[in-house]
Design a protein around this nucleic acid. Structure first.
Lengths: 345, 345
DNA sequence: ACCCTTCCGGACAGGACCTGTCCGGAAGGC
DNA sequence: GCCTTCCGGACAGGTCCTGTCCGGAAGGGT
């Protein structure tokens, strides 16, 4: 085994278990214990501190240093990391998803083929079940898109709009943002001379051209804010607006699916909340979390939505009072599969 | 720069950008291009294939090979990976969380101190907001526990039970499982001569003794199943049972918070669902997703719960019909903060 | 078809550095 | 006090690493 290979192996061993004795390491690496000592020294010189304790039960262990040593992951761990990144929770922290995507791109680029399908399989099962099927983001697609963002490379891909209309795009990719397990690409489309957002799960065959572009300024503070605005402006299948006798901050804290721009303060003690969703069930869920605040509420929306909510409320009351309820054809629309929040593209 | 250090730097460069020309690499590494070529060859011999393309715009790029090369992450990426692992989605895949925890232990062991607080800060904001505050799992604690599982080391820690009673434990840690962003440790407690589950967010000061133990057989197929059973048996603050005129598989697919053992088939076309939760709001949410199935339902539960659901249903119906509703003191209990599913310890 | 740019890899010489062997020393645990 | 472990200097032999040459092959653009 060559020396650099041995160093990596050593790092790998030190990462895979808490503590190793010099003799064990020497045997595993096929060298003298003196050489192990030298290798450990080399690691230390590289800036990866290795603690050692003498005496019975002593040994070497990797400590945390100034910067992160190369991570040597086994197959399972690599899959776990990929899945973790893929389902990266978005909300709040500026740019965290961006970084998740970048890390995923890094990993995906070198992920052995045999692990690819495992990542896909696991993320299949593991993604929030509130998402409809068919909205699963393909890690490979996401990785390509993320790499294009990172390298400021023009990106071409096929896209299927929310209404199902296919198109071919050639855009300047800028940022990736995730909301509730859905990934969105914020990009500038030179052909349409405007900014667009794309749902990554509706992107197919992304191919990085090798052409670089110089990033333009996004017409917003940051990508998350921009996306939030775009989504808030997007038409939903079903929509309703509630006015709540509680401060915006309280509502934001308790409502599921926290989208800043859904909640609009009306003075210090009241606010207005947009409940839009692509299924009536989602609208009802959102409303329920407002009801749970137990404050005065008013509601405004199309008859279709109000009717459904009314029927749902009646069924709930009936169920609780009498112990049973029959199916109600008026609520049928809510059983169709959800497709998540819409997009502006 | 020594040769192994240079190899690592080369790997890092190749991972950080899509493509590099030989000349660029030579300059970055401070060696001749001939040496770069030799280094690239060395990488290939280590089993990390590097694609190269000649001609204008050509260069070197890392390809995927038989196994994963050492990952060289920058600060941000390391934080993203840690957070991704910490919020690892559980559901379904056998042992995936276990692996996530192992990978996290690996990472946490070598994570520079300055990044620790960033991981904590990000996961603070980023964890499912449906979780009450104070149920955030400390990555450092989780990492220690995971390492103890991995190394089969006896673990001591302080624990605060669900009722708030403190105790000191000394257990044989076996498995980690996560449900909805909460981590559970399944362990054998020799002092009590029985298996126990612990919520990791209620564990403090975990310290691995260096004493090894030989794992005993868990009284279940796997840890997830065991936990599921334990949680299903655990008393909830509020509880109710619904009988649904739909196959169990359909319900499992559509209900939020899929816990296998919550849903019990009654023949092929009906099933019984346990709606237990620690807030009335959670119970109502669960019930709502059953209502959305739009099938016949019956409900059974304590008057306290039924009353609340009745009131909620009435308020919902009223709101939808008249456009407004007043606060209702009968539903007050639902505004208390949730604490997530209970545990059996 | 031509040229330019890029990757490729053999040969060679000088010197750096790596390894095993031997050793005396220090520090923790029983 | 004994054992086990880590520690690091000295030394000799030989590996192998690096820079410098070079001719060759393969894309891409004009």
């Amino acid at each position: 085994m060559t020396m650099p290979a041995r160093m990596l192996r050593l790092l790998s061993l030190l990462q895979s278990r808490r503590e190793w004795s010099g003799a064990e390491l020497a045997e595993r690496l096929g060298v003298t214990d003196r050489t192990v000592r030298r290798d450990v020294d080399r690691l230390r010189e590289l800036g990866y501190p290795v603690d050692a304790s003498p005496g019975t039960g002593g040994g070497y262990r990797l400590a945390s240093g100034r910067d992160l040593p190369p991570l040597l992951l086994d197959d399972d761990e690599a899959v776990a990391v990929a899945v973790g990144l893929l389902t990266a929770p978005g909300g709040g922290v500026r740019g965290i998803e961006e970084t998740s995507a970048r890390a995923l791109a890094k990993l995906e680029q070198v992920l052995p083929a045999r692990l690819r399908h495992r990542v896909a399989a696991v993320s299949e099962v593991t993604l929030p079940i509130t998402l409809a099927k068919g909205t699963r983001t393909d890690p490979a697609v996401l990785a390509v898109v993320a790499a294009a963002c990172r390298d400021h490379e023009l990106l071409t891909f096929d896209y299927e709009s929310r209404e199902g209309a296919p198109s071919s795009r050639r855009v300047e990719p800028h940022h990736l943002v995730t909301v509730h397990g859905l990934w969105y690409l914020v990009a500038y489309d030179p052909e349409r001379a405007d900014w667009r957002t794309f749902r990554v799960d509706r992107v197919t065959a992304p191919t990085p051209t090798h052409r670089r572009f110089s990033p333009r300024r996004l017409p917003a503070e940051d990508a998350a804010t921009y996306l939030d605005r775009t989504l808030a402006a997007a038409p939903y299948r079903y929509d309703a607006v509630a006015t709540v006798a509680a401060p915006a901050s309280v509502v934001l804290e308790r409502m599921i699916g926290p989208s800043r721009s859904r909640v609009e303060p009306l003075g210090a003690r009241r606010c207005r909340v947009r409940l839009g969703g692509d299924t009536l069930e989602i609208v009802a869920q959102r409303l329920l979390s407002l009801l749970a605040l137990d404050v005065d509420l008013t509601l405004d929306g199309p008859a279709e939505v109000l009717d459904h909510l009314h029927a749902t409320g009646r069924r709930l009351a009936e169920l609780a009072a009498t112990g049973s309820t029959k199916r109600d054809s008026a609520t049928k629309a809510s059983t169709q599969a959800g497709t998540g929040p819409g997009d502006g593209a």
